[in-house]
Design a protein around this nucleic acid. Sequence first.
RNA 1: GCCGCUGUGGCUUAGAGGUAGAGCGGCUGAUUCGUAAUCAGCAGGUCGUGGGUUCAAAUCCCACCAGCGGCUCCA
Length: 636
Amino acid sequence: MQLLFIHSDYIEYEAKEKTRVAEPISESSRNERVEEALVVFIAVEREDEKDARYVVEKASEEAISVFNKVNAERIVLYPYAHLSSELASPGRSIEILREMENELLSRGVEVKRAPFGWYKSFTLRCKGHPLSELSRKIKVREGAEAEEAEVEKKSKALEAEEKAESHFFFMDEKGNLIRTADFEFVEEQENLRKFFVYESEKRRAVDKIPPHVELMKRLEIADYESSSDPGNLRFYPKGKLIKTLLEDYVRNSVAEYGAAEVETPIMYSTEHPSLKDYLERFPARQYSMVGKVGKPDLFLRFSACFGQFLMGKDMSMSYKNLPLKIFELASSFRKEKRGELVGLRRLRKFTMPDMHTFCKDMGEALEEFKKQYELCMRVLEGIGFSSKDYEVAIRFTKEFYDDDANKRFIEELVRIAGKPVLIEMWDQRFFYFVLKFEFNFVDALEKASALSTVQIDVENAERYGIKYVDANGKENRPIILHCSPSGAIERCMYALLEKAYLDKEGGVLPMLPLWLSPTQLRIIPVAERHLEYVEGVLPLLTGIRVDVDDREETVSKKIRDAGREWIPYVAVVGNKEVEKKTLNVTIREESSDKKQKVEMDVSALKERIEEGLKNKPFWRLPVSYRLSERTKFVGG
RNA sequence: GCCGCUGUGGCUUAGAGGUAGAGCGGCUGAUUCGUAAUCAGCAGGUCGUGGGUUCAAAUCCCACCAGCGGCUCCA
C-alpha cells in the first residue's frame, strides 16, 4: 500500500463523473470541504490482498502517528490510484479502504473518506511545514504469501491426486507385467534402471554442474540472462539456428502427419470459467499480469491447450472430419520454482510443439494414440535419438488396464518399443487423462526428463464445450489426444548436448547431428596464398554451411579450434590440394583421437554431406563465413 | 519457495584484514606455417549489488541478486 500524507489547511473535492468501478454515493456527499485535515492519498496494491488485515492495521497506525505529530484535527482518506502501478482489484480496494476508515474511527479519529472510482476535482492547501508532506509504503509481512498459498482452495482434482496411489511395474517385450522388485536388469538396461530410480527414489548429491550448461555456453548456443526472470534464456546465433532447425523439423513432421498449424494467444483472462480449474490446480505456477482497472487479470499460457480448446469449441466438427489434428509451436511459460530450473532442461519460458487430436470415441483415440506413439519415435529418430537413447514410460488407470482389449493394446506398445518399459498404474484417475506415455532421456547426472508424450484426455471436451455431430445428427463430446512429438525444443537441445557429453565420456568424439551443426564443413587454408583456391571452391558447396578459417594462425591451432567446435567435416588446403584440385578431409564421426584423413574431390565431399542432410531443414550460416570477421559472443 | 554451497577483466582462475596477479581470449607487431595451443608487446578489474564493522574490506557481518546441489515440483 502506498500512502502520501499532506497536512492541509483545507481540502475541497467534487466527484464529477463515474468510472467503471465507481462506488455508489449519495448526492449530498458529492461535494465536500474539510478544514484542518491530514489528507491521506492511498493506493491499495495487489500484494495487500494477501494480508489485508495486517496492511489496514499498519497503515492506520502510520496515519495516526503522523496525525498526532502534526496536530491535525481530522483525517481524509483519498483513494489515489496513480501512486502505484500494481493496484489491487477494485473490489478489494474498496473493502480495504472501508476497513481502514472503520479502524481509524474505532481509534477515535474523525474520518472522512472520498468516494472510490470517481473522477474528482480537488483543491488542496498544504501547510508547508517540515512534516506536512510525507509518504509511506506498507509492505505485507514476510510469509504472508506462503500462508495464503497454503489456504488456497484446492480443486477436486488436486485433492484426488493427493489420495491417488500409483504402482510401478516393468513390462517386457513379451507383455509380462513384472513387479519392480522382481525385475533383473541386464547390461543394456542400465538407463532403464536409472530412470526407475529417478522416478521412485531419492537421489544422492552430485557436485557437478550439468555438462550441457557448460556446453551451451562454450559452444555459443545459449546462456542465462540475469536481467530477466530466471529460466528465460538468451540464444546466440548458433543456438538460434539449431533451435530454428529443430522447430522446422518438428513442424514439417507434424504437417506431414496431417495436422493443421494454428496460432493462438499467449495470454488469457484468469476469469474464464474453463481456465479456472487449471489455475486453481497450479496457483503459483503462472506468470500473471494485473489487468487495468476494471479489466480482468491475465496469465501467460503454460501450454497451447487453452487456445486450441477455445478454438475447438467454436468449430463445427462432423464425425466425417475426425480424427482432426491441430498443431502449434507454442512459446509457453511456467513459473517453475527457483530451485527447479536448470539450463536448457527446465526453463520458465520454452517452446512446446503441441498437437491436439479430436477423436470420435475411445476406439479411434487408441488407434490414433498408437500412430502418434510411432510418430514420436520417428521424430526423435530424425532429431538424432535412437530408441537406445530414451526410456519409455506408459502410465494408465487400473480401470483402463482391467479391460482385456486395453491390456493387449499396452502390450502392443511395448512390443513396438522393442525393449522393457516402465509401467505406472494409478488406482484412480486424478487428472484429465486415462492413458499417457513419455519417452524419457537420462542424462549424465542420471536425471530423467520427458521428451515426447501423448495423453488421452477424457475431460476437457466437456469442460470447454467441444462437440462434434455424429452420423445420427446428434452432438457428442470428442476424446482429445495431447501430443508433443519431440517435447520442448530447448529440452531436445539439452538432450543432444548431454548425449554428446556422454559419448565423449565413452571415448567417442562428441558432436551434434550434421544437419544441426552450425558449421558443417570448415576449410582451413595452410597459408594465405591458398585462400584464392578456397574461395573458388565455395560456390560449388551451396546448400552446405561452410566456413573458412582465414585467421593468421598455425594449422595446428585451427585444427584444434575446429575440433573444439565439434565441426563434422574439416578440410585442409595446402599446395598439394591446390595442385590436385582436392580437399584433405577429416571426418569427425569416423575419427577417434587419432585423425583420419581422406583425400576427396569437392563434388564427392558435397555428395557425402548432402546425403547426410536429406529430408532435413536447412538454414544458411548466421555468421560470417570468414572466421577472421567473426564476433565472439562468449569468451574463452 | 525452503536448506546448503558459490560469485574476482569477455572466459578460466590466484589472492583468506594492509598497493588485485596470471593463463586463455582481444588489440599491435613479427611469423605464412601440413593436422589438438608460434613468439613478443599492449590494453582491459565498481572483486555480483547495497549496507555495516574497521585506521584499512575482494577478504569479516547483514540483506538482496544470480548460479550450483538437495528438498519439492514437472499441467
